[in-house]
Amino acid sequence: MLTPHQTRYTRDKRQTVVRDWITRVFGLRTLNLRFRAERVLEEALELAQAAGYPQEKIAALTAKVYANPPGEVGQEAGGLGLSLLAFCDTAQISADECEEREIMRVLSKSTAHFKARIERKIADGVCSEDLLEEAA
């Protein structure tokens, strides 16, 4: 069993690998908090969809969240991490294995694949080009 320090190092190392990959593939323009938040939101919605969460409840949940004052980024990131751990436990899957497998999957694909993908997302309106311009 890993100690908390070893677990943190492992995750911190993966975080560095992901940041380096993002910078290499998409450039510094995508290292913007609002743009990264949009990517997290898209993944959260895809996870909710995969789990059978009804689309018609999303607008009400969004309104409820935005009716409150904004939280602190670090605390909210921690809450997201805790929620993901609880979700994975409920789904009887390893969050650690899922994260590691996804990193390996994206690292195995070509830079051209992801550059084309982000351009498609921009064209489809799933990726906010204005946030990319803001980060440039």
Rank of each mutant, 00 (worst) to 15 (best):
I103L: 09
L47H: 13
A51C: 15
P70Y: 04
A48I: 01
Q49L: 07
L41G: 15
Y53P: 00
G52I: 00
P69H: 15
L107W: 03
L41P: 07
A51D: 15
G74E: 07
I93Q: 14
A95W: 14
T62P: 02
G52F: 00
T62C: 10
I103M: 01
A86I: 14
R39M: 13
T111E: 11
I103W: 00
T62D: 07
A67H: 14
V65Y: 05
S83E: 07
V73H: 15
N32G: 11
R117H: 11
I103V: 05
L33M: 12
L41H: 15
R117I: 00
A86P: 04
L61P: 01
L61V: 12
A59D: 15
Q49T: 09
R39I: 07
E100A: 14
E56H: 13
G79S: 01
R105Y: 01
V40A: 14
H113G: 02
N32S: 05
K64E: 11
G74S: 08
E46Q: 12
M104K: 15
H113T: 08
R39D: 02
E56D: 15
R39P: 06
S94G: 07
K109M: 09
L82V: 06
Q75N: 10
K109A: 04
N68S: 14
T90G: 15
L47Q: 11
N68A: 13
G74I: 02
Q55T: 11
D96L: 01
D89G: 08
L85R: 12
A95I: 07
A67L: 04
I93E: 12
F114Y: 13
E99V: 02
Y53S: 03
T62A: 10
H113S: 07
E43K: 00
A95F: 14
Q92S: 13
N68T: 07
E43V: 01
I58M: 06
A67N: 11
A91S: 08
